[in-house]
Amino acid sequence: MDEGVTAVRRQFPAKIKAIDDLSARSEDFREICRDFADAQSALQKWKVSTDPKRDERVVEYQELIAELSKEIARALEGSVPPIAR
């Protein structure tokens, strides 16, 4: 399984089926998932960094992760088929 999809599955455990379904058919969604995983990885590196810009970068990556999480949530909401009436 793609590392990005795995990271998103950990973030949204209640949506695993929708994540798997959407990732199977959408390269764009898989790319967002990869970006999400990359941002999480970078955040962890900056959290332990001694670089003077550490705090600034931590905030930037936290914001990026929050935005990607929203984008992923919107994509997952849009992937749910409408309820049959």
Rank of each mutant, 00 (worst) to 15 (best):
A18K: 05
A73D: 12
A14D: 14
Y61D: 04
Q44A: 14
A75D: 04
S69F: 03
E63T: 13
E71K: 06
T50K: 13
A37K: 01
R25L: 08
E60D: 14
Q40E: 05
K53W: 12
I72M: 03
L22H: 02
K47R: 13
R34T: 08
L64T: 05
Q62W: 05
A73I: 08
A18Y: 05
G78Q: 04
E71G: 07
S69I: 05
E27S: 14
Q44Y: 12
Q40H: 01
L76R: 02
K17T: 10
M1K: 08
D20C: 07
S41K: 13
K17G: 08
A24S: 13
D28V: 07
A18T: 09
T6A: 15
Q40A: 02
F12I: 06
W46R: 05
R10C: 09
A84T: 12
Q40L: 03
L22I: 03
K45E: 12
D20A: 07
P81L: 08
F29A: 00
R25H: 08
K15A: 11
A24T: 08
E67A: 13
Q40T: 02
I16A: 10
L64A: 07
K70P: 01
I32E: 03
T6C: 10
G78T: 03
A84L: 15
V59W: 12
I32D: 02
L64V: 05
Q40I: 01
R30L: 04
Y61Q: 07
E56A: 15
S49P: 00
S69R: 07
W46L: 02
E31Q: 09
S23A: 15
E56D: 14
Q11W: 07
E56Q: 15
C33K: 01
R9G: 06
V80S: 05
F29M: 00
T50F: 10
G4I: 00
Q44L: 15
M1Y: 06
Q62S: 10
D21R: 08
E3N: 11
V80P: 00
K17V: 10
V80I: 12
I83C: 11
K53N: 15
E67S: 13
Y61F: 15
Y61N: 06
D20N: 10
R9A: 12
D35N: 14
Q11A: 14
E27G: 11
E67Q: 13
Q11N: 10
I72S: 01
D51S: 09
R85W: 13
Y61R: 09
V59E: 14
P81Q: 07
E31L: 07
V48I: 15
A66R: 15
A39M: 06
A37G: 02
A14R: 13
A42L: 11
I32A: 04
K70I: 05
D55P: 06
P13N: 09
S69P: 03
A75W: 02
A84K: 14
V48F: 10
R10P: 04
G4M: 01
S41I: 09
Q44R: 15
A7W: 03
W46E: 04
S49Q: 00
D20I: 04
L64H: 05
S79F: 01
L76E: 03
R34G: 01
I72H: 00
E27H: 14
D2L: 06
A14S: 15
I83W: 12
I32P: 00
Q11F: 07
